[in-house]
Design a protein around this nucleic acid. Structure first.
Length: 292
DNA sequence: CGCCAGGTTAGAG
DNA sequence: CTCTAACATGGC
């Protein structure tokens, strides 16, 4: 009833759990003691599993019965992607130790990996929810959205939620979303993304294998997905090492504080700084975000 | 009250 | 091509 995954070095499960706990409004997983619990639809199965660390491995335990072998394999892949177990961080640290802005961060957050969003639809919708509003309010919107439209099961007095499917979201209208305090814009964008998935214009399979530039151009065809959103999703779902949201306000703030600038850096300044991080832009962004 | 939040679009110049 | 208003609401 459990499977294990070998851990790369360095890997910090503690920093991972901290990150997963950053909002009490998060319904897509629950952290308890030293583990994280998540519900994931796999084919027709709804699998509830927990992940903890032990013996230099990640231990995945199944909590609602024994899933089929294909489902188990898929969960294993999901966890590997979720916690970015394949990346060798050592070159990033070697580079970061020599960089004024990153020096203290790579030391402080050693073993912290990009917590991915293996589900592309979830990643895009989440990015749209986060557009132009504070993160806390974005979590409120997501909480309401998942609570109302996501599949869920109750086990031992706890309810676990999965992210709503694209198909379900295409059936929604302004009347469903505006009461959750979505703006008309967000309501429309979320539905357009869902339609792009259901219509087959966009899918994870379709984008995998594309170059970063190709994938970005493909995503930006969806109305509501701009440069920032596309880069965010490509970073969190596909882990292009050089995908990062150049225009991101939080990133600018982190650079301003880190470098002690009087004002936010210009886009040109950010570009110049990130030139030094070539091949590790996504990780540099993650660590700068974390510094806030 | 004013200003800013992990932006994007449409429209004007 | 670049610049701007509109979008809507929470938090300080």
């Amino acid at each position: 009833m459990s499977i294990t995954l070998p851990l790369p070095d360095p890997f910090s499960f503690e920093l991972t759990l901290q990150f997963l706990q950053r909002s009490p409004k998060e319904l897509l997983h629950r952290t308890r003691d030293d583990r994280v619990i998540k519900l994931l639809p796999v084919g027709k199965e709804l699998v509830l599993f927990s992940v903890k660390e032990g013996n230099n491995k990640l231990i995945v335990e199944f909590l609602n019965g024994d899933p089929s072998d294909p489902a188990k394999a898929e969960i294993k892949d999901y966890v590997r992607e979720w916690f970015d177990l394949e990346t060798d961080l050592n070159p990033f640290y070697a580079m970061g130790r020599k960089d004024e802005l990153l020096k203290s961060l790579v030391k402080k957050y050693s073993g912290f990996r990009i917590i991915g969003q293996p589900d592309l639809f979830e990643s895009l919708v989440w990015a749209v929810l986060g557009q132009q509003i504070n993160l806390n309010f974005a979590y409120t919107l997501k909480q309401r959205f998942v609570e109302l439209f996501g599949q869920n099961i109750e086990i031992d007095g706890h309810r676990y939620f999965a992210f709503p499917t694209a198909e379900d979201v295409t059936r929604l209208a302004d009347d469903d979303l505006l009461p959750l305090q979505f703006s008309r814009q967000k309501s429309k964008y979320v539905r357009l993304i869902a339609e792009a998935f259901v219509g087959g214009e966009v899918s994870k399979v379709k984008l995998s294998g594309m170059t970063l530039q190709q994938a970005k151009e493909h995503l930006i065809k969806i109305k509501g997905v701009g440069n920032w959103t596309a880069n965010y999703a490509l970073m969190k779902t596909f882990r292009y090492p050089d995908a990062f949201p150049l225009e991101d306000v939080a990133l600018h703030k982190a650079i301003q504080i880190g470098k002690g600038l009087k004002a936010r850096p210009s886009l040109e300044q950010v570009k110049r700084i990130f030139k030094k991080y070539k091949g590790w832009e996504a990780y540099a962004t993650l660590y700068l975000w974390r510094s806030l």
